[in-house]
Design a protein around this nucleic acid. Structure first.
Lengths: 189, 189
DNA sequence: GTTAGCATGTAAGGAGTTACATGATTTT
DNA sequence: AAAATCATGTAACTCCTTACATGCTAAC
């Protein structure tokens, strides 16, 4: 399953809405959180070209219409591109709950089915619980050199992850409630 | 000023405490937050060699003592290494308040003078205020495609940064109080 | 005796950035 | 007319990981 290339996924997700040219894709990604908040053109344009030659995207040169103006190469998803996006969205492997991947996937949740959404949220929660454990181990491991600043950094790190877990718990609960609501409308009242 | 190589700085900071061998350096870095939480040997060992050839570190082959055992190459800071660390710690350029750099530098705050600590904390606070602005702009920029999940991600991102700012405000206040306490002991009561 | 952890290293590759290069269009 | 922003692209480089390769030592 060609381990998910995040940039590719982000581009597919952005173009799923509607065809766009590179500069605009960058702006959209820039308005989101996560990686690619400040993506360089040196990454974006080669990626788009690769995706065209892989058959995931097709181009509409906008310039041809007005004459001289060559600017703006508008990219749109091909059938293969749509298929690839759907495959990626349906697959929620272990990599989907790492920091960057989670943000990218969360931003596409409206396009993701309920079951996969729940699996990603639960996977992420599990990952965060692990991190809590890792940090606690780190606290124990140092013991020796536990200066006030290092201790404070760890305390703050722990707090941040704890909040993340609470946030996820809330989201998971909402998802479950929504699913129950659909499966058994009687519960809603 | 050879723009700060974070890994180099982290190694210098770790060895400032006492000489250590590579494997142990990795363990120490692994117990901290920030980048290098899971540093690979493929990065660490070449970096150590480079630092030796640059004259920042010197080696004590521990194995020679016990005979056959060649294991454990213990690294320690040279005079140049100590000097370099001090230079880096005293310089608090704009890069010092980026995510990764901030974590690395914060972990060395006990070795950093009060004025530089304050400058780094204030710089970081400014950076976080900027990010708050960036996220808000992002919220405005989308408007069009503002599905519930993307909105929730942005809301959560904003909240996280706001908390970071509060945390920094607290730390800055503490630093100022400590400085006042030293300059004018009468204020302490 | 065999598994787990300690300990060091190299070569290839991935995923991005920066710097460079160019030119059109819109705003002031 | 100048400056800002739109728009695309390449080449070199950075910094890190992964996979590979080796061998010792402690615990079960």
């Amino acid at each position: 399953m060609a381990r998910t290339d995040m940039l590719l996924l982000a581009i597919l997700g952005t173009l799923a809405e509607r065809p766009l040219h590179g500069y605009e894709i960058r702006k959209r990604l820039g308005s989101q959180l996560g990686p690619f908040r400040a993506l360089s053109y040196g990454s974006l344009y080669p990626a788009l070209k690769r995706m065209v030659s892989d058959g995931l995207l097709a181009v509409d040169e906008e310039g041809a219409v007005t004459g001289t103006r060559r600017s703006r190469i508008v990219y749109r998803l091909t059938h293969a591109g749509i298929g690839r996006l759907q495959d990626e969205l349906a697959s929620a492997g272990a990599s989907a709950w790492e920091d960057d991947a989670f943000d990218v996937r969360f931003a596409m949740f409206t396009r993701t089915d309920a079951a996969t959404r729940l699996r990603i949220l639960e996977g992420r929660r599990m990952r965060m619980a692990e991190r809590l454990e890792e940090i606690s181990e780190g606290v124990r491991a140092v013991r020796e050199r536990h200066d006030a600043y290092t201790a404070e950094l760890q305390r703050h790190g722990l707090e941040r992850v704890e909040r993340e877990v609470e946030w996820l718990d809330q989201l998971i609960e909402n998802e479950r409630a929504a699913t129950r609501g659909k499966d058994d409308p009687a519960d809603a009242g």
